[in-house]
Design a protein around this nucleic acid. Sequence first.
DNA 1: GTAGGGTTAG
Length: 495
Amino acid sequence: MNRLFTKSLCTSSAAGANLKPPPPDPAAISNLILSSPIQSPLPSNTPWTPHLVNSILKRLWNHGPKALHFFHLLDRRHRNYIHSPSSFNLAIDIAARLHLHTTVWSLIRRMRSLRIGPSPKTFAIVAERFASSGKPDKAVNLFLNMHEHGCSQDLASFNTILDILCKSKRVEKAYELFKDLRGRFSADVVTYNVIVNGWCLIKRTPKALEVLKEMVERGISPNLTTYNTMLKGFFRSGQVRQGWEFFLEMKKRNCGIGFDVVTYTTVVHGLGVSGEVKRAKKVFDEMIREGVLPSVATHNALIQVLCKKDTVENAVLVFEEMVRKGYEPNVTTYNVLIRGLFHAGEFTRGEEMMRTMEEEGGCEASFQTYNMMIRYYLECGEVEKALGLFERMGSGGCLPNLDTYNILISGMFVRKRSEDMVVAGKLLVEMEILRSQSKSGSRLTKKFRLTESGKALFREDRARTVSKLLNYTIALLSWAKKFSAFYSSCVSEYR
DNA sequence: GTAGGGTTAG
């Protein structure tokens, strides 16, 4: 990886004095940071910009300590660069994910001393981390005390905290807070929509309908967002008939609102995933007749539905049609279609589609793309293909995450070859290092160890081989643990 | 980062 960086430096010097040097490559710098010891200085003479810093922080997302180290080095030791509020927010997000509360607060204080924040967004980020790590009360307290940190509470921030609680499935908690404070903040249609959506997210549509009734009683008119939310709620909870009837009712009453592209996309997707492909296609055609233009998301919904419940060939036809009409497929379009092709065993066409996506579509493969392709390859024993993709991930635009490692390690057992076990062991060590930096992944790993690896090993009846491999794995694991303890002690320097 | 639609399979 060091070589990669040197190479990029060489190209820039070879470009000559009269040619503008190429912009710094975030991937190369990220790889340099990843492969260097923690105390290493940053490459000098880099023209730092908020954009460059943010893309490096995003690339190092799964390597939090390294990312924070980079952020701190630049913050403290560079005279000509001051971090932007958005970089601070990213760093705070990373620190909060690692539960480094002291770091979070020192970053917030630093923002304040530089007079660039914290903003409501900063608090939303921290609150979201609290809520999603099982501490909704802390999220609420943060909202209640944010004015003490120079950030005022208003209806917008009230709606945000309710939304954060709802999206992390703490709907009861959100509803409590809503009832307590709706008077103080004069709850509006957005507030009610957030709560309606909350109940829908946990599939409690009767509660959602209750809130809908309540808002009408309190003189707040539901808008199209409210109805679309409710519609999605029905489909999500498997109440396809109720969803369809709600849609017809919306059509009948009209309410002067009409439908928009979101309404139609919801119905196309909802009907399709429940197997009603013909009706989904009819609704898709109907929206065009009604003069509502389908969006890329609508096409994605239809393509996914065709892949799942019809044929991938028909999905490809819709894809080609959308391109012909001038739509620009996005990363979701490609992911859905590549998945469909792989699912149908069309690996070559899937690979071709990935090339199209990167070369013609201008889309970079995401970790979803890679993880899904790796999973399908491993499923049918194409270990080399899977490892090839894994290698490409390391050098390309998106780094492997814990899911990638779990998928790969589990897959190393399918061929029952000893050389695969060695690779699995190596991957396990790498993953242990990665996991030691991301506490949120520990549950996932535990599950993997107890289920996938255990089952795979016990399926092997050659007891001696099994026990040898098991010992090997255990030795690697304990070595990895020692190493990660050592690593954490190095890391603690800047916590 | 005041709200609603489109990413795995198990």
